[in-house]
Computed example of a mutant assay.
Amino acid sequence: MDAGGSNCRCRITKPDGTVIGTGAGGQANARIGLDRLYAELVLVTDQAIGEAGLSEAQVTQIHAGIGLAGISRPGIREGLGGFAFPFASVAYESDAYIANLGANGGGEGAILIIGTGSIGHIRLASGTFTIGGYGFPISDEGSGAALGLSAMRHALRALDGRTRKTPLSTAVTERFDHDTARAIAWMAEASPRDYGIFAPLVMDYAEADDEIARSIVEDAALHIERFIETIFARGAPRCVLVGGLAPRMKPWLRSRTVERLSEPLGDPLDGALALARETSLSG
């Protein structure tokens, strides 16, 4: 399973790799709380088990690997021990860990995830470690949430008259009937995922040459390039750009940066399956 800030996905395979069941759900990270997280994980696993047509006895033979966004938050790993899955084994790691396993085929390498949030993950023979990923809004530079936050800031300044309006600012404030009070009320409850919903809008207007949208995206591209430079400086032999926003951000990077990037060898669910296999063999 890949449990992230925007969605949760599950894949069941036979030992030979044949896919027999899949499941998909909504937000499933540590930020939403253990009860909601457990309910979402059960939902997607039940979908996949139902599609696979497994019996109760077969379910008890499953070895599960779960990549969870926010697993490093205090108390989360301890809380995961209370999840009552009927499987033979369950191994938990971060969503970045399984994404790296999948993208680099289980070998040494790094990934830079650009999705709702952003984080670099490096896997070397000497160990694994992350760069960034401290949580929104402190971190997550170059991410969808960061693009959305910048768009909101510009839109509110435009409503105040502190900066000129652009098609982007008008499109954002239109969501709130151009009412500052409504926008502020929304921001008081908004999650990173909520801000990330504005990211495609920012990209659309940047590609249409909206001046403010371009400046937001160009700034995000600089953060992404700095991430990549740091990843290679820390000893990674290869780096893969992954995440939902990655395809749209890639054209905004300098060609010399893009030339250093590698293509993924697999996806995060391939990494989760590799984690499950490692656990089954070690057990």
Rank of each mutant, 00 (worst) to 15 (best):
A3P: 10
S6E: 11
S6F: 07
N7V: 01
T13D: 12
G17I: 09
G21P: 05
G25V: 09
R31D: 09
I32H: 07
D35N: 10
L37F: 15
E40R: 13
Q47H: 14
I49M: 11
G53P: 14
A57N: 08
Q58W: 00
A64F: 06
L68Y: 05
L68V: 09
A69K: 10
G70H: 09
G75M: 10
P86R: 04
F87S: 12
S94A: 05
A96M: 02
Y97G: 05
A99N: 07
L101N: 10
A103P: 09
G105K: 07
G105N: 11
G107L: 11
G109P: 11
I113W: 04
I114G: 05
I122N: 02
A125G: 06
S126W: 01
S126Y: 11
F129A: 10
F129I: 03
I131H: 06
I138E: 07
G144R: 03
S150L: 05
S150T: 02
R157M: 14
A158T: 13
D160T: 07
G161F: 12
R162Y: 11
T166C: 07
T173F: 07
D177T: 08
T180R: 15
R182P: 00
R182L: 06
A183E: 06
A185H: 07
A185W: 00
A190F: 12
P192I: 10
D194H: 11
Y195G: 06
V202F: 05
Y205R: 11
E207D: 15
D210H: 13
D210M: 05
E211F: 06
E218H: 09
A221K: 06
L222T: 08
L222M: 10
F227V: 01
E229F: 01
A233S: 12
L245I: 15
A246P: 08
K250S: 06
P251W: 01
R254M: 00
R256P: 00
E259L: 11
R260L: 14
S262D: 15
L265H: 02
D270T: 13
A274R: 14
A274I: 11
L281D: 13
S282G: 03
